[in-house]
Simulated assay, not measured.
Amino acid sequence: MSSTILPARGLSLVEAAANEAEKNPFLVALGERVRALRARRGMTRKAAAVAAEVSERHLANLEYGVGNASILVLLQVAQALQCSLAELLGDVTASSAEWLLIRELLEHRDEVTLRRVREAIGSMLGTGGGNASAAQRSARVALVGLRGAGKSTLGRLLAEDLDFPFVELSREIEKFAGCSISEIQGLYGQNAYRRYERRALEEAVQIYPEAVIATPGGLVSDAATLNLLLAHCTTVWLQATPADHMKRVIAQGDMRPMADSKEAMDDLKGILAGRAAFYSKAEFTLDTSSQPLAPTFEALRRIVREALQLPA
Rank of each mutant, 00 (worst) to 15 (best):
K23I: 07
Y196K: 13
A159L: 04
A192S: 12
G217S: 04
S152H: 01
A86K: 05
L88K: 13
V28E: 13
L89S: 12
F297D: 01
G145H: 03
R109N: 12
L286W: 11
A94E: 12
A18D: 15
E298F: 02
L101F: 11
L162Q: 05
K269I: 07
A134V: 15
A18L: 11
P165L: 06
L201Y: 07
A47H: 05
H58E: 10
R194Y: 03
L146Q: 09
E15K: 07
A307T: 03
E306M: 11
V34F: 12
A86D: 15
G150C: 06
E111H: 07
P292E: 09
Q206T: 09
E15M: 08
R116T: 10
F166D: 03
M258R: 13
A276L: 10
S96V: 00
A149V: 01
V249P: 01
A135R: 12
G253A: 07
R116D: 09
Q190T: 11
A177M: 08
L74Q: 15
R115T: 11
A192H: 11
A307K: 01
L81A: 15
V92W: 13
R103V: 09
A48E: 10
E298G: 00
N61Y: 01
T225Q: 03
V112R: 09
R198K: 15
E32P: 04
V28I: 14
K175V: 12
E111M: 13
R115W: 00
V54Q: 05
R171S: 13
E202C: 04
Y193D: 00
R199D: 08
A132D: 09
L238G: 03
I121V: 15
V50K: 08
S180E: 04
A231K: 06
D254K: 06
A36R: 14
N19E: 15
S290G: 10
L272K: 02
A204H: 07
A97E: 14
Q136V: 02
S289V: 03
I121C: 12
E202N: 11
T288S: 13
T241S: 12
L293N: 06
G128I: 00
P257R: 03
A159F: 04
W237E: 00
G129T: 04
